[in-house]
Design a protein around this nucleic acid. Sequence first.
DNA 1: GTAAAACGTTGACATAGGACAAGAATCATA
DNA 2: TATGATTCTTGTCCTATGTCAACGTTTTAC
Lengths: 189, 189
Amino acid sequence: MYTTLKRFLESKADFNRLELDEVYAHFRVIKTKRNEILLDYDQVSKHYYFVNKGCVRLFTTTKEGNEITRYFAFKGSFVTALPSFIDQQPAEEFLQTIEKSELLCITRSDFYKLVNKLPQFTKIYTEILELGFIVAQKRIYGFQGYDALQKVKWIIQNQPQLLVRVSNKMAASYLGISPSTLSRIKSRL
Amino acid sequence: MYTTLKRFLESKADFNRLELDEVYAHFRVIKTKRNEILLDYDQVSKHYYFVNKGCVRLFTTTKEGNEITRYFAFKGSFVTALPSFIDQQPAEEFLQTIEKSELLCITRSDFYKLVNKLPQFTKIYTEILELGFIVAQKRIYGFQGYDALQKVKWIIQNQPQLLVRVSNKMAASYLGISPSTLSRIKSRL
DNA sequence: GTAAAACGTTGACATAGGACAAGAATCATA
DNA sequence: TATGATTCTTGTCCTATGTCAACGTTTTAC
């Protein structure tokens, strides 16, 4: 149950047996179906999720009702609506499983308890923030000035599993192009 | 000299006199002309800057040589090429003053010394990361699915000083539209 | 297992906005 | 202060990509 999380934690800092158990104790297992909403647009983010199996998508919608995908969390990633988790304002984004998934869930208050109690966990939080920052920057800035074809090539280079794992529509909404355009580009590769 | 920095620090955490002096001691004042490069594309980011006066721009260029502006740091903000500062890889972006400026500069090693020595400074670093993350997300995701006019309106709402403070060209490269388009839109507002 | 709904693909069409250029305005340098 | 360089504005033109629609395929739900 905790193998993947253990691997994640130990790759970031040194924990002894007791500390690991203390960390685990705060996580609760959640099994979900496909397309389950974990967090709604107006809700405040109170949980951090670790993906044990499956995939969680972070997305929002425009006024016109089009979905815009911001992030896909696959096995071994932490995910939440971070801005809301940090400042406790309504998320203005959705968290959704896009496959039957198994998640480890920790509440915000428990999360910060661990951050304040275990220096290793403080370090992990800092790294999550740093990495989140870097990844988001690379992804989004990487797209600046790219046309549709360049974006698709970028994603094939940098997240090759993505195009095969998620639907055409979701991938398109992640790339910021229309499903038609993505479909046309794929057929020409 | 340290008034603006003092205000910044005290707004984030409680420091006593001695601690403040210790923080100050690691910052060195830099006075720059307009358009001075603080960090080049291939360099590794070794300094964090606090803007006392003036403005620092973070930008990069496309293969075709077009500039893309990522961030403007005005008075009272910290700025560096954070991904490079964190992982010590070449920055792939530029730091440049766009006005005659006065900066407080701390080296990376001193910065991390403070982070590890003073809990308040740890907290400030966490907040810088959190805030940087939130601001970057809001800014960039805020633009997803916006057309040029919506972007301009967004910027007028959210960073009203920006359009008057920086050149048309730089503002356009920040918004991800061409200078011509920005010019046309402004004339129609 | 079947009907309904959602999705993917492809075509025809419309358009936002980029590229380029030229003249006016502003800025930099000596 | 003069002159060359850069930037701003605005026109014309063009292309990438969005929209809409039709149709076949896949998924969902009862």
